[in-house]
Amino acid sequence: MKETNIFKVLADQQRREILIMLKDGRLNAGEIAEKLQVTPAALSYHLKLLKSADLVSEYKEKNFIFYEINTTVFDELILWINQFGGAKG
């Protein structure tokens, strides 16, 4: 995981909504902004934080930038959380 505080990034409801949107597949910034009903500037801020935490990857295709969830970071996070206990068999 990168140095960005992943929990601070995940604390924001709109950033969590972006991740939920992306779990079904990649979207471009316009699609995300339209679904969230936010300005491009606000979306840019949220995407910057998500990218800095490595939660989202971006891919350029022609005139568009697409965003995709990075599940590897979530896998690492789950492993880290599981070390504190949980269901014991």
Rank of each mutant, 00 (worst) to 15 (best):
N5Y: 04
L79Q: 14
T4C: 10
E34W: 06
R16I: 11
L50S: 02
R26P: 02
M21V: 05
A33K: 00
L43E: 00
R26G: 08
F7T: 12
L27H: 09
S57Y: 10
H46S: 03
E3K: 15
L27A: 08
E31S: 09
K8P: 02
E58G: 01
A87D: 13
K35E: 13
Q37H: 11
Q13P: 08
E34Y: 06
E68Y: 02
F7K: 10
I65V: 13
L50A: 01
D54G: 10
Y45N: 12
I32F: 01
V9N: 07
W80Q: 14
R16P: 03
L36W: 06
T71H: 09
K8R: 15
L10N: 03
K35N: 11
W80N: 13
T71W: 05
T72I: 09
P40S: 04
N5R: 06
K60A: 03
F7A: 04
A33F: 00
K51L: 04
D54N: 14
G85F: 09
Q14C: 09
N70E: 04
Q37D: 15
T4I: 09
D54C: 04
E17G: 07
M1I: 11
A29P: 00
A53E: 01
V38A: 01
T4H: 06
I18W: 06
N82G: 11
A29K: 09
K35Q: 11
I81W: 10
A53C: 04
D12I: 09
G89I: 13
H46L: 00
I65W: 01
Y45C: 06
G86R: 08
A29H: 03
L55T: 00
H46K: 08
P40R: 12
V73S: 05
N63R: 05
S52R: 14
Q13R: 15
A33G: 05
L36M: 15
L10G: 11
G86V: 07
D54Q: 01
V73I: 13
T71F: 08
G30Q: 09
T72P: 01
L19F: 08
K2E: 13
G89L: 15
I6H: 04
L77C: 03
L79N: 15
L79C: 07
Q37F: 07
E58Q: 10
D24W: 09
E31Y: 01
E17I: 12
W80A: 15
L49D: 11
